[in-house]
Amino acid sequence: MKRGKAFVSTFLFALFSYLLLTIAAGQSMAQEAPWSHIIWSFEELIIGISVSLIVAALADHILCRTENFRMLNPVRWLIMLIYTIPLFIEMVKANFDVAYRVITGKIEPGIVKIDPDLETDLGITILANSITLTPGTLTVDVDDERSEMYIHWIKVGEDPTENIAGRFVRWIRRFAE
């Protein structure tokens, strides 16, 4: 059962990547259809499905090692897509902040410890990447056992856990936990 789920998710991921990379690359069967130059031809579909099957059969135990298949739920992917909007707004703020510091040179750096209290690997990875992309903060080290993170902060302030990670943790908990 577990092997079957791993096989199916690897197959779907490989097929999705193949279809995304070959969109609009060939001619479809129905020449007169309005989208004939966008969608895939019959031969392309066959090749894509067979290559994805081979990949899934050979490499599913390498590519899909997880015990827990909650990310197969499409709602979680939808929330992840929505999460990019607040992340992008934070990134815009971050970059104007860093640009200001590049020009004026006003820095007051230090390494602080935060305790985001996330359980899963995916959640910790996304949180670490989000922190690195947002205002004046950079993940230096992650303690796997206690889920603590050490953050390099370009302007050290009060209450690091809430100020750095609070708004992301509330989002990430919705799709990764």
């Binding site: 750096p109 230090g110 410890k113 670490a128 230096v140």
Partner: peptide, 29 residues
């Protein structure tokens, strides 16, 4: 960001100290 994180961690393990730092929790840990 993952690459940046790996480089920062490597720098800290190498023993590069943050200059002008007002606080360093990781060193204490």
């Amino acid at each position: 960001p993952t690459g940046a994180h790996a480089l920062a961690r490597a720098a800290h393990k190498m023993g590069v100290k943050p200059k002008k730092a007002v606080r360093d929790d990781l060193k204490d840990a």
